[in-house]
Design a protein around this nucleic acid. Structure first.
Lengths: 125, 125
DNA sequence: TCAATGTATATGACGCGTCATTCAATGACA
DNA sequence: TGTCATTGAATGACGCGTCATATACATTGA
């Protein structure tokens, strides 16, 4: 029952998987080694960094990443513990939070972003 | 310092991530719901199914998937516990194992593969 | 033949993501 | 205004993947 079409699909899928894992793995290892944060932490940092206006952001973050709401919450926990980000309560809606980079967070982000972009370029051609 | 090139890279990367997660998630949920196995279990089953000659395979499997050796070992544990696969010791080299689909494994694989291919087609266009 | 070294798999501790649930605040509407 | 549903976020239990290691077998070479 395995049609040629099927084989093509499977091949295409394996190649996507490989390039995804290769790229994600390379970035993750590099960031871990040089900046002591993982890929997901960086992604959140990166999202916060490029939405510099202060909206109520936890929620918005969840919509810009494939991560679960609860995953985002835990990533932010770690970032906060590491002193890179701080949670600000939101006056309009006291259930919401928005995030701010600390000085340290801003500094780390700008170095890490260079590395991140370089590895993307290298892996995505 | 964010060049246009950087933004393009990041966009490209986010789109890869999204399509990877969307596809993997859809397949995983469907297989879980209908056949009670996860995506990684299916991938191993699928690899075993299409290398029908009996070589010493655990090792070979590791080379055809981004999974770690130890991940493969645990996936196979689960498949074996579920009665879908059996580990055969290898006479030539008693460190090695090769895998065989059981009847149940073969049956499940052929139904699940249909679902898998359909979801790939749907998600990869 | 006997170290020493290498190779195939298994295992345990650990970190992270997910799901289900919880909690607080908000909104809707009688 | 008081109830009821809804929403933003946090939390705990749990499963899985990873890393470092262990174990058993194999190979090399003196």
């Amino acid at each position: 029952m395995a049609t040629t079409r099927d084989r093509q699909l499977v091949e295409q899928w394996r190649s996507i998987q490989n390039s995804y894992f290769r790229t994600a793995g390379a970035i993750d290892r590099a960031l871990e080694a040089k900046f002591d944060i993982g890929l997901n932490e960086f992604e959140i940092l990166d999202l916060v960094a490029d939405s510099e206006e202060s909206a109520c952001r936890m929620k918005a973050l969840g919509e810009r990443t494939p991560m679960t709401q609860s995953a985002v919450s835990k990533v932010v926990d770690r970032l906060e513990k590491a002193g890179l980000v701080s949670r600000q309560t939101c006056v309009d809606d006291r259930r919401s939070l928005f995030l701010e980079l600390t000085e340290a967070g801003r500094a780390l982000h700008s170095s890490a972003a260079v590395e991140h972009r370089a590895l993307l370029a290298e892996n995505l051609g």
